[in-house]
Computed example of a mutant assay.
Amino acid sequence: MKTSHTLPIIALLLTSCATTTVDKQAEQLVVTPETLEEAKKVVGYECTYVKKTGTRINKKVCTTLAQREAAKKRSEQFVNEYRENNIPVPKQTGQ
């Protein structure tokens, strides 16, 4: 019977400790327009408008520098694989 009373108390203590840690972290993280702009510069955050087939309304796409570089690398790999696998083999004539 004793354990049935102690389990809720332990759970309450653990959750209260976790919330105070989160609260302290939230207090340290203060987002202002200046810090937000600085963070955007650090990660290379940019937004562009992309035309989508079937609509006149452009779609806003925001990416970081790392995401754009990864997409560029994937597209280059795709083109290279396509070239390697689909180049026609020259036909041998005269033999």
Rank of each mutant, 00 (worst) to 15 (best):
Q77P: 00
K73F: 11
G54L: 05
K73G: 01
R56T: 11
K59Y: 05
R56C: 06
P8V: 03
N80A: 06
T6S: 12
C17W: 14
E38C: 02
R68A: 00
P8I: 04
F78V: 05
A70S: 12
E34P: 00
F78A: 15
C17A: 15
T6E: 15
I9M: 13
Q95H: 13
K24F: 07
K60H: 10
L13P: 01
C62I: 03
I10V: 15
I87A: 15
S75C: 04
T64N: 03
N85V: 04
V79F: 06
K52C: 05
N80S: 07
Y82W: 12
C62P: 01
K40P: 02
N80M: 02
A66Y: 14
A18P: 00
K72P: 03
T64Q: 02
Q92A: 08
Y45D: 01
G44I: 02
R56M: 12
R68S: 00
K24H: 10
L29S: 07
C47A: 12
T55A: 11
K2D: 07
I10C: 15
P33D: 02
D23L: 03
V61T: 11
T64S: 08
E84C: 03
T32G: 01
Y82T: 08
A71W: 06
L29W: 10
A18W: 01
K60S: 12
P90F: 09
T35R: 15
N58R: 15
E37P: 00
K52S: 07
I9Q: 14
L65Y: 08
A18Q: 02
S16Y: 02
S16D: 07
P88V: 10
F78K: 11
A71D: 05
L65Q: 13
T53V: 15
T53M: 11
I57C: 03
C47F: 06
T53Y: 10
L65P: 01
C62T: 03
P90A: 12
K24C: 03
V79H: 04
E46G: 01
N85R: 14
E69I: 05
A66F: 13
T19R: 09
F78Y: 13
G44N: 01
T21C: 10
N85K: 14
T15G: 13
V79G: 00
V42D: 07
V30E: 09
A18L: 06
I87G: 03
V22W: 02
T63L: 14
Y45G: 01
K40I: 05
T15V: 14
V31P: 00
C47E: 11
E81G: 13
S16L: 13
T21S: 10
G94Y: 11
K59V: 14
T20D: 06
T15P: 00
T3A: 12
S16K: 04
Q25G: 01
C62K: 03
N58W: 06
S16V: 09
N85W: 04
L7M: 12
S75D: 11
I87C: 03
L14N: 10
T20N: 07
C17Q: 14
L29G: 00
Q95L: 13
T64G: 02
K52W: 07
K72C: 08
F78H: 11
L14K: 08
T32K: 00
K51R: 13
T48W: 12
Y49I: 08
T6C: 09
V50L: 12
F78W: 12
K52M: 07
A39K: 11
T19K: 04
L65W: 04
K51T: 14
